[in-house]
Computed example of a mutant assay.
Amino acid sequence: MLPWELLATAAAPEGDTLRLFRRGEEYSIRLSDGNELMNSRLGGSEEALATLAFEKLGGRSAPSVLIGGLGMGFTLRAAQSVAPSAARLIVSEIVPELAEWARREMASVFKDCLADPRVEIRLGDVGAEIRAAEGAFDAILLDVDNGPDGLTRSGNDSLYSEAGLSAARRALTKGGVLAVWSAHPDDAFSRRLSRGGFEAHAHMVRAGRTKRGSRHTVWIARRAGA
């Protein structure tokens, strides 16, 4: 078996280090403790984050969509495949090097998806982007951590708190959709979504693109009261 090759490192918020590895045509991004955050072979659940959200939007002709976290681009590319030509796909990424890796080290993964005129990359905190908006987005897709527990960045906890969900609700249009990815189910978060004015459903989806592999959780939460 081919050995893993370290291609690049980046400083993550709060002092951790992200490491990009390659083995043949497979890529892996890990924390310095070895915990794998994403793998180029396993993007099925991240893709479902986008496709399930667009299904819930119900065919809006020019949706404005905020994607929290570029990662390996699974959610972005899935959104591109189903979004109409007039859509705006805004990707908020807090680690600038990830956007650079997409164009260099992982160019074979991203191909030309960042050249899509519908796509805009904004470097910064997606939480700040949400708090600054009011009725600006038809959908907000969040894949910035391993779930509503701030594994990679404790500051991400605020996205999933009652205050964070209230900010997300304000940032959405009427009937807008908040979609959240998680490596595991979380009943407490489901309850917070309901209390926060969302009609939410937790979907269990496979990590891979087949019926094999671990299951992840994707919440699709529609802004209630529309």
Rank of each mutant, 00 (worst) to 15 (best):
L2D: 14
L2E: 14
P3W: 08
W4Q: 13
A8H: 12
T9Q: 14
T9S: 11
T9D: 00
T9A: 05
D16S: 15
R19F: 03
L20Y: 07
F21D: 12
F21T: 06
E25G: 12
E25Y: 07
S28A: 15
S28T: 07
I29E: 00
R30H: 08
R30I: 02
L31A: 13
D33P: 05
D33V: 05
N35H: 12
N35T: 14
M38S: 02
M38Y: 00
M38N: 00
N39D: 13
G43K: 03
E47P: 00
E47Q: 14
A50H: 09
A50C: 11
T51D: 06
A53R: 01
A53V: 05
G58D: 11
R60A: 08
A62W: 01
S64M: 08
I67G: 11
I67R: 08
I67K: 08
G68N: 11
G68W: 06
G69V: 05
G71S: 03
G71K: 02
G71V: 02
G73N: 10
T75A: 05
T75N: 00
A79P: 01
Q80A: 07
A83P: 04
P84G: 02
P84T: 04
P84E: 02
S85A: 15
S85N: 01
A87Y: 00
R88C: 09
R88I: 04
L89P: 02
I90T: 15
V91I: 10
S92Q: 14
V95S: 06
V95R: 03
P96L: 10
L98V: 15
A99C: 14
E100G: 12
R103K: 15
R104G: 13
A107G: 12
V109Q: 12
C113W: 05
C113L: 04
L114G: 04
D116H: 01
D116S: 04
P117D: 03
R118K: 04
V119D: 07
R122Y: 06
D125P: 03
V126A: 12
V126S: 07
G127M: 09
E129D: 14
A133C: 07
E134R: 14
E134T: 12
D138L: 11
A139L: 11
L141V: 09
L141S: 06
L141F: 03
L141C: 00
D143Q: 03
D143N: 08
D145S: 14
L151F: 13
L151M: 05
D157V: 11
S158M: 04
Y160G: 07
A163E: 15
L165S: 01
L165D: 00
S166K: 13
A167E: 12
R169H: 10
R170W: 08
R170V: 06
A171Q: 13
L172Y: 10
T173Y: 06
K174H: 12
G175S: 13
A179I: 04
S182A: 15
A183M: 13
P185H: 11
D186H: 09
D187Q: 15
A188Q: 11
F189R: 09
F189A: 07
R191G: 10
R191V: 14
R192H: 09
L193T: 02
S194C: 04
G196L: 02
G196R: 03
G197K: 04
A200K: 02
A202M: 14
H203A: 05
M204F: 11
M204G: 11
M204V: 01
G208L: 01
R209H: 07
T210S: 15
T210Y: 01
K211N: 09
K211P: 00
R212Q: 10
H216Y: 12
I220A: 11
G225V: 13
A226D: 15
A226S: 15
